[in-house]
Design a binder for these strands. Structure first.
Length: 187
DNA sequence: ACTAATCTGATCACTGCCCCAGTGATCAGCACATTAGT
């Protein structure tokens, strides 16, 4: 019985799990991105926004590009440890100015927005791009903030389940959330 | 094959409340994260 319920759950998620379109950067955009990366591999929000305007690309795509670029760079440089990128923590220790560096403004969700997000999470903890965009439009928050909200929520739920797998609750919502499957377990 | 997109877990940063829990933002990923579009 439980297996059948899970299958329905999995099928529903797979059906609605769509990725964002693959972004194709132009040669000029890549040139600008690489230039910035070479002297600032950890650009703050202000820098990313400025760059976004400059190359006419969403700031969220730029943030992801830098994450992927750092991952490749760190992988390539692992054989030469002294050339590795400094972590953000190390950089902050080196440079007190870094401590006041601009992070993106904290997003505050009101009760109604949170209610919508929680309802959506209950229905599908791994929403695809269409679903996230619809939610973003519905509650008036950028799509990437929705993605981060879901990432934090699933992450905290999974670590909570790991910490106390025996935990049982009477709440139907929590019961449903506690049987969340990881994406690779769905395939 | 290359690389953008996504996921997980850890940690930072800030808020509201009174010392720490809650939560959004950011980051790495080490038998070198995985998945999927081009």
């Amino acid at each position: 019985m439980a297996d059948r319920v899970d299958m329905q759950y999995i099928q529903r998620i797979l059906k609605t799990h769509h990725r964002r379109n693959h972004t194709k950067f132009t040669r000029e955009q890549l040139k600008s991105l690489i230039n910035v990366f070479n002297y600032e591999p950890y650009p703050n929000y202000t820098t990313r926004q400025k760059l976004a305007l400059e190359i006419n690309m969403e700031e969220s795509r730029i943030q992801i590009w830098f994450q992927n670029r750092r991952a490749r760079h760190l992988f390539e440089k692992r054989s030469k440890p002294n050339e590795a990128l400094k972590s953000s923590q190390e950089r902050r220790q080196d440079n007190p100015e870094e401590r006041s560096q601009v992070r993106r403004c904290h997003t505050y969700y009101n009760t109604s927005q949170l209610c919508t997000l929680k309802k959506a999470f209950k229905n599908n903890p791994y929403p695809g791009i269409e679903c996230r965009e619809q939610l973003a439009k519905e509650i008036g928050v950028p799509e990437l903030r929705i993605q981060v909200w879901f990432q934090n929520r699933i992450s905290r739920l999974l670590s909570q389940v790991k910490e106390d797998p025996e935990e049982t609750t009477d709440s139907e919502t929590e019961k449903q959330e506690s049987r969340v499957l990881k994406p690779h377990e769905m395939r």
